[in-house]
Design a protein around this nucleic acid. Structure first.
Length: 788
DNA sequence: GAACAGATGGTTTTT
DNA sequence: CCATCTGTTC
């Protein structure tokens, strides 16, 4: 056996390429796929700037470049760091790297020419590749590399940081009543309608996040302020931040800031010495803070003789509201050259392996419709080229428009039913070509269908049902019911089991609403509490099993009177979490049903998080000599746990739900569909737009930049980024074009646009081919679609 | 085409 | 609660 020299290839590139083609079924050969081949094969110390259109296989490129570094360049997996934007994409990327890595390893072990490195191959540990979202990686690194004796960082949920802003930033200095602050916040939001304390807090936290994301010079902003509300806003934010610092709490923005600070001050060198390759997916949604983090990581990678690879598509930048600055992607080459003195190679991936030629045409057409959008794009960007290799039918683009949303829901349900169970839907185009749309009889499932909405909420703010709810309703009433999967559509507080459980707990800890009635709670929360309690009392009256050794009624009575059923006296302190776990004895769904467990997890998580910042740590006190103490502990539980649940501030962990529903139709926001693809995609382009009303113009044909752009214009002068190049209104239009482009390009085979007839005939909507100047390229009646 | 009465619908997206 | 849209009337 010949000892291997460092930097010798472990696996020959040609063998690697051949193994990928034959074992992974991905043709990355130079002649059939030159762009991907370039990006994957490029030498290890070459940095890459990959501009990748939809469906061009960017995840494939990242995964295979990582594996090429390991197999061909003999790089240790622990030297590689890969990030993407969403948790879902991160999980997918990781599993693909691990899966493919293992397949390739086995292929090479079988080859006689590599027998001599068999043990080396077997020892490869792909798990040591660092993958995740930037936030999850930051959290992990800050936990693992903290100074001795310091506690790990506590990452708080949204509702906790909101509660802290309200308490520390607003109430404690009476700022919630300050008229200057209110005016300033109302100006930013563009309306003073419905501006309550919680709304002020939400906007303040958005400003706070922007301080971090855009790396704002806060004192300059404060000193130059041209509005008396600005210093007050800055003080509220500062107080809130100090509180977070004192308690070692981190929200996402502070987590990233802390990570950057420590990358720079040398306290993470233990982690950095291993970093040699940085790969970033979805770079178009990066903000300045994240860019600085990536540049710091790259600085180290270059020192370790490695490189950076970034992948993205400016046409798919959707997160301006979260600080994403697409200019950072578009100006990546000059920016990284200024910062680190390197010149990455630019690679365009424009071959689309996902969609039919008609879909690709449609997307190309859509993204080039609006002339004023073209100078917001990466210059000289090639159009997407259809290259789908699996067999397909070239279906026309469909439209379904109806007079009202109820009819739309029922006709859409009929359509879906026909596609799944009814033997297919017949379509005819103007050339009299016949098509049948039907689910793949061998391995098709309802999960092949996705319904994309700007919001998946099932009810509007007035509680009226929206298309997602109406459709769910219609689909489950069919002769052959079809299940939908819409974890973000329904709020936790409205779910039946949650209502009963919360009601039981309220009845136990606070019988006869004693504390509730003597506490100044928001009316919406009180109404919800009363609903829950009613549900719980009905449930108790039903005398659910088990009835031995004690019934639910006996259990609740014992809590209400704070007397034990045995001889012992009532405990002085009982963690609320114990009460929850005892209560679910009578709620079988919360023990066995996976969905029930997900809801239970959301409730216990809320209790745990609330315990972080209250005085009673999530415990209910009973002190016969000091009844006020007990009342205070109940009041705290009402405020910190049940108000957030009742007002919809708690999110369920949908990752947990995902695994259980492979056979349901997906209802999701366009944002959630990022990076995914489906054979049949239904995009809602206007089930909410009956009139040309100003209140929802921002969702279809904006009249001003809106809150996000106001905030950008307000703060960017105090950032190194400077004032945005494009006007606020143009940015709002750009973003809508990107949103619908993203939605349409998820499609593999069939795309159906749905909405109200008003949208087909007159309501301006970027999604239905209106230019920002008011010209309607697609034209009244949307005759570019086949209407069904 | 002005003037008015009555209707309309409320910012969405998430690590 | 109220700015803006829509339809009706002169």
């Amino acid at each position: 056996m010949v000892p291997k020299r460092r930097d010798d290839p472990m696996i020959n590139w040609n063998d690697f390429e051949r193994a990928v083609i034959s074992n992974l079924n991905r043709d990355i050969s130079r002649q059939s796929n030159p762009d991907q081949n370039d990006a994957i094969q490029s030498p290890l110390n070459h940095s890459l700037f990959v501009v990748a259109g939809p469906g061009s296989g960017k995840t494939t490129v990242i995964a295979l470049r990582v594996l090429k570094l390991i197999f061909v360049d003999d790089i240790d997996p622990s030297n590689i760091l890969v990030t993407t934007f969403t948790r879902k994409a991160a999980a997918e990327l990781r599993s693909r790297i691990l899966g493919w890595g293992d397949q390739l390893r086995r292929a090479f072990i079988r080859q006689p020419s590599y027998h001599h490195i068999g043990n080396q191959l077997r020892r490869l540990d792909f798990n040591r590749i660092t993958t995740g979202t930037l936030d999850s990686i930051a959290e992990e690194i800050l936990r693992d590399y903290r100074a001795p004796g310091t506690p790990p960082p506590v990452v708080i949920e949204d509702f906790v940081s909101n509660a802290l802003m309200i308490r520390v930033g607003l109430f404690s200095h009476g700022r919630h009543n300050n008229q200057d602050l209110r005016n300033y916040i109302a100006n930013l939001r563009g309306t003073s309608w419905g501006l309550n304390i919680s709304g002020i807090s939400t906007t303040l936290r958005e400003i706070k996040d922007r301080f971090y994301h855009d790396q704002i010079n806060i004192s300059q902003f404060r000193d130059n302020s041209n509005h008396p509300g600005i210093p007050i806003a800055c003080d509220a934010i500062n107080d809130c931040d100090l509180e977070l610092q004192n308690k070692l709490f981190f929200d996402f923005a502070r987590l990233e800031q802390e990570f950057l600070t420590r990358l720079r001050n040398g306290t993470l060198d233990g982690f950095l010495q291993d970093i040699r390759f940085v790969l970033v997916d979805e770079y178009q949604d990066t903000n300045l803070l994240q860019e600085q983090i990536y540049f710091e990581l790259t600085r180290v990678a270059l020192r370790n003789r490695g490189s950076i690879t970034i992948v993205g598509d400016d046409d798919q930048s959707l997160y301006r509201f979260r600080g994403a600055t697409v200019d950072l992607f578009q100006a990546f080459l000059p920016r990284i050259n200024d910062n680190l003195g390197i010149q990455p190679t630019i690679v365009y991936l424009s071959r689309n392996y996902r969609s039919t030629p008609i879909i690709v045409d449609f997307c190309n057409g859509f993204i080039t419709l609006d002339t004023l959008y073209q100078n917001a794009r990466v210059q000289n960007k090639p159009p997407i080229i259809p290259m789908r290799s699996q067999p397909y039918t070239n279906y026309p683009i469909l439209g379904m428009f109806r007079d009202d949303v109820n009819l739309l829901a029922s006709d859409l349900a009929q359509f879906i039913h026909g596609v799944i169970h009814g033997g297919g839907i017949q379509i005819q185009d103007p050339q009299d070509n016949q098509y049948t749309i039907s689910i793949n009889p061998q391995h098709g499932t309802p999960a092949d269908i996705a319904l994309l909405f700007s919001s998946p909420r099932e009810f509007d703010t007035q509680g009226r049902p929206r298309l997602p709810w109406l459709l769910r309703n219609e689909l489950t009433q069919l002769s052959h019911p079809i299940q939908v999967f819409n974890p973000r559509g329904e709020n936790l507080e409205a779910i039946s089991d949650v209502q009963v459980l919360c009601g039981l707990i309220l009845e136990c800890i606070d019988p006869n609403n004693n504390v509730q009635n003597n506490t100044n709670l928001p009316q919406v929360a009180i109404d919800m509490f009363d609903t829950w309690r009613r549900r719980a009392r009905t449930y108790i009256n039903g005398n659910p099993p088990p009835t031995t050794p004690r019934s639910l009624r006996q259990f609740v009575n014992s809590w209400q009177s704070r007397t034990t059923l045995g001889r012992r006296t009532w405990e002085r302190k009982i963690p609320l979490i114990d009460l929850v776990y005892k209560s679910i004895t009578w709620l079988p769904n919360m023990q066995n049903d996976i969905e029930g467990l997900v809801y239970l997890e959301a409730i216990t998580r809320t209790i745990n998080q609330a315990g972080l910042f209250g005085d009673f740590g999530g415990q209910i006190i009973f002190d016969p000599n000091n009844l006020r103490l007990g009342q205070a502990s109940i009041r705290e539980a009402l405020w910190n746990i049940f108000v957030p649940i009742a007002t919809g501030a708690i999110e369920i962990d949908e990752d947990l739900l995902e695994t259980l529903s492979p056979d349901r139709i997906n209802i999701m926001s366009i944002h959630q569909s990022k990076g995914l693809e489906f054979p049949l995609v239904v995009v809602d382009v206007g089930s909410d737009f009956r009139t040309n009303h100003h209140a929802h113009a921002f969702k279809r044909f904006p009249r001003n930049g809106g809150k996000t752009c106001n905030m950008e214009d307000e703060l960017r002068p105090y950032s190194r980024l400077g004032q945005p190049q494009r006007a606020a209104l143009d940015r709002a239009f750009d973003d809508l074009i990107r949103l619908y482009f993203e939605a349409y390009s998820r499609t593999q085979d069939v795309l159906l646009l749905v909405g109200l007839n008003s949208v087909r005939d007159r309501i301006p909507n970027v999604g239905t081919g209106w230019g920002r100047k008011g010209n309607w390229y697609w034209g009244c009646g949307l005759h570019n679609l086949i209407h069904i």
